Amino acid sequence: MSFTKTTEQASKYEHLEQMSVADLLKNINNEDKTVPLAVEKTLPQIEHLVTEIVTKMKKGGRLFYIGAGTSGRLGIVDASECPPTFGVSFDLVLGIIAGGDTAIRRAVENAEDDTTQAWEDLKAHSITPNDVVVGIAASGTTPYVISGLERCNENGISTGCITCNAGSPLAKTAQFPIEVVVGPEFVTGSSRMKAGTAQKLILNMISTTAMIQLGKVKGNKMVDMQLSNDKLVDRGIKMIMDEIPVDYKQAGELLKQYGSVRNAVDNYK
């Protein structure tokens, strides 16, 4: 059954090459302003997916993102930022891209059209029904992603998706679909623009909300963050000073002794 791909419809703007730099920037920005409003309309869908993710994670499950091209890269970015931000293990949230790690930097020919590889990629991580797999595809038609979710459905694994076309095959495959319709791109068909921005916003919402629900944030602070550079150590020291009556030097000593803001505060006497 056919459907309309708004991500492929012609741009509302003509003769881009004749625009000044200022006009190009203004018009791109005007289009970008519409993205949060499109995301807002999907909040109930996002809520349903996040609730499922949290439920599974509390039972020991993991979150997988699968995608191709820009969508795959966005999933990898979100997954890779969870350990340093929230102090979770690197295998709690995983991003998988069609074509493997090579495709993170360079496109791998025909990788997104493969209808068997996604399931093989997931099996390499010993996926189980405790896990949740979220397929990311602006078009909603990427064979790699759709076939991966189909196999997950067959094996009792919860599935979600983020797509930017309404009524797509991907949305119909996912148990918890998110359809964020951002409309035609400024450059016709360039879904790395508004569609990519929408996907990034939603991925931020999914992982951040899930981590908060799992207790990885206290108040509004990243109390379990990894102290991987001087900036983060300084931030951690100041967070400790906000919580307990110590000066900068004492807070630094506590942080060094206990290894995290949470442990430093909890063990302070």
Rank of each mutant, 00 (worst) to 15 (best):
Met1Leu: 12
Ser2Asn: 15
Phe3Asp: 03
Thr4Gln: 14
Thr7Leu: 12
Ser11Arg: 10
Ser11Phe: 10
Glu14Ile: 06
Glu14Gln: 15
Glu17Thr: 11
Gln18Asn: 14
Gln18Cys: 05
Gln18Trp: 02
Gln18Ser: 15
Asp23Lys: 15
Asp23Met: 12
Asp23Pro: 00
Ile28Thr: 12
Lys33Met: 13
Val35Leu: 13
Val39Asn: 07
Lys41Glu: 15
Glu47Gln: 13
Glu47Phe: 02
Glu47Ser: 12
Leu49Cys: 09
Val50Pro: 06
Thr55Cys: 05
Lys58Leu: 02
Lys58Gln: 14
Gly60Ala: 03
Gly61Ile: 05
Gly61Ser: 08
Gly61Pro: 01
Ile66His: 11
Ala68Tyr: 02
Gly72Phe: 06
Gly72Tyr: 05
Asp78Asn: 08
Ala79Pro: 06
Glu81Asn: 06
Cys82Asp: 08
Cys82Pro: 00
Pro84Lys: 01
Thr85Tyr: 05
Val88Glu: 06
Ser89Asn: 08
Phe90Arg: 13
Leu92Cys: 00
Leu92Tyr: 00
Gly100Thr: 06
Asp101Ala: 10
Ala103Leu: 10
Arg105Met: 12
Ala107Gly: 15
Val108Asn: 11
Ala111Gln: 12
Glu112Phe: 13
Thr115Trp: 00
Thr116Phe: 08
Ala118Gln: 07
Trp119Gln: 08
Trp119Glu: 11
Leu122Cys: 10
Leu122Thr: 07
Ser126Glu: 15
Pro129Val: 11
Asn130Tyr: 13
Asp131Phe: 04
Val132Met: 08
Gly135Cys: 04
Ala138Leu: 07
Ala138Ile: 06
Gly140Gln: 09
Pro143Tyr: 02
Tyr144Asp: 01
Val145Ser: 04
Ile146Thr: 11
Glu150Met: 10
Gly156Asp: 13
Thr159Arg: 12
Thr163Trp: 00
Gly167Ile: 07
Ser168Pro: 02
Pro169Ser: 04
Lys172Thr: 00
Thr173Pro: 08
Ala174Arg: 11
Pro177Ala: 12
Ile178Phe: 07
Ile178His: 10
Val180Tyr: 02
Val181His: 01
Pro184Lys: 04
Ser190Phe: 02
Lys194Ile: 09
Gly196Ser: 09
Lys200Asp: 00
Lys200Ala: 09
Leu201Ser: 05
Ile202Lys: 05
Ile202His: 02
Ile206Ala: 07
Thr209Asp: 10
Met211Val: 09
Met211Pro: 02
Ile212Gln: 07
Ile212Lys: 07
Gln213Asp: 14
Leu214Ser: 07
Leu214Asp: 08
Lys216Ser: 00
Lys216Met: 12
Gly219Lys: 10
Asn220Arg: 13
Lys221Leu: 06
Ser228Lys: 06
Asn229Ala: 14
Lys231Ala: 13
Val233Trp: 11
Arg235His: 03
Gly236Trp: 02
Gly236Asn: 06
Ile237Pro: 07
Met239Pro: 05
Met241His: 11
Met241Val: 09
Met241Arg: 14
Glu243Ala: 15
Pro245Lys: 12
Pro245Ala: 10
Tyr248Asp: 02
Gln250Trp: 00
Ala251Asn: 08
Leu255Thr: 04
Gly259Glu: 05
Val261Ser: 00
Val261His: 03
Asn263Gly: 02
Asn263Ala: 15
Asn267Leu: 04
